[in-house]
Amino acid sequence: MTVTPPTVAAETPQRATRRFRTTKGRETWAGLAMMAPAGILLVLFLIIPVILAFTLSFTNARLISPNPPRFVGFDNFVRAFTNDPVFLQSAWNTFLFALVVVPVQAGLGLLLAVLVNRRMRGVTAFRVIFFIPVVTSIVVVSILWRFLYQPNGLINSMIDTITFGAWSGMDWLNNPQTALGAIIVLSIWQAVGFHMIIWLAGLQTIPEELYEAAKMDGAGPWRQFVSVTWPGLRPTMVFVLVTITISALALFVQIDVMTQGGPTGSTSTIVFYAVRKGYEQQEIGYAAAISLIFFVAVLIIALVQRRLTRDKD
């Protein structure tokens, strides 16, 4: 006599659907729990400040005032472009700084990357030397260069030695003609190592076989760069240009440490002026309007830059 084993009841479609929904629900809640810390920080430190800045830009709010904020419409924006020459000077300084720094820093970083990409003795040491200013605090770098730019500083001493006393240099940071240029030189020197590393990473993604094929076709170093290196660096170029542009437009620390916007506003920038208006002069509403103008300007420049450097395919 054979005993037939009991059959396992087949799972009904309703139970399978219920189990699937339960498992999916657990995964969803687990994902939300892991995302929650970053999401909370994003809301607290990005979304809420942006909404507050947008709201305050249309008011006359002050940092400390017994009177409640009053809605003033577009008065802050009209004031910025018609009745505030310091803002216009700050805007000009900001875009002039970016206009010089972006191509020079990108080009110099590419040149250094090409040089240190060669197989030669001591190349790692050169890479470290060029990258040291990047990992050094920009505040420390600014304080150091402020001493270098003093009338009796190292730069003027070098000029005096090289010219045999024919030119004794100047007070670089207290001269409206040279103050912004001095900060431009400092900024390029401090950040060029970072973009050198980015260019170097892009160079090392280009297959060596392309260079070998170019050599077999008789291409020299310049033709290899134009036909092989530069096309292979296009994605890297877009990243470098966008990051340098945003960083240059957001210039603040060097100004705050070295010149405080002087002399006579020749080094004031949009970010520095907004901070000064908001916290030193307590005009929070007007500072928020300046920040909103800066945000729109950076967004437009980034979009135009991205469009000009996009692939044509």
Rank of each mutant, 00 (worst) to 15 (best):
T7W: 13
A9K: 15
T12Y: 08
A16I: 09
T17I: 10
R19K: 12
F20G: 07
R21T: 09
R21Q: 12
T22K: 10
T23H: 12
T23I: 11
K24Q: 13
L32C: 06
A36W: 09
P37E: 03
G39Q: 05
G39M: 08
V43S: 09
L44C: 13
F45L: 06
F45E: 03
S57L: 02
A61T: 04
R79T: 12
F81D: 07
D84V: 07
T94C: 00
V101T: 04
L112Q: 00
F126W: 05
F130V: 04
V134N: 02
Q150C: 08
P151F: 09
S157Y: 10
F164L: 14
A166S: 14
N174P: 04
P176V: 10
T178G: 08
I184L: 12
W189Y: 11
Q190G: 01
F194I: 02
I198D: 00
T205R: 15
E209P: 10
L210F: 10
M216N: 15
M216Q: 15
A219L: 13
A219F: 14
S227T: 11
V228M: 11
V240I: 13
T243E: 04
I244V: 09
L251K: 02
M258T: 00
G261D: 03
T264R: 09
T264V: 07
S266P: 03
S268D: 08
V271P: 01
Y273P: 00
E280D: 15
G285P: 03
G285A: 05
A288F: 11
S291P: 06
F295D: 06
V296K: 08
A297D: 05
V298M: 12
L308W: 07
L308K: 08
K312R: 08
D313G: 09
D313K: 10
D313R: 03
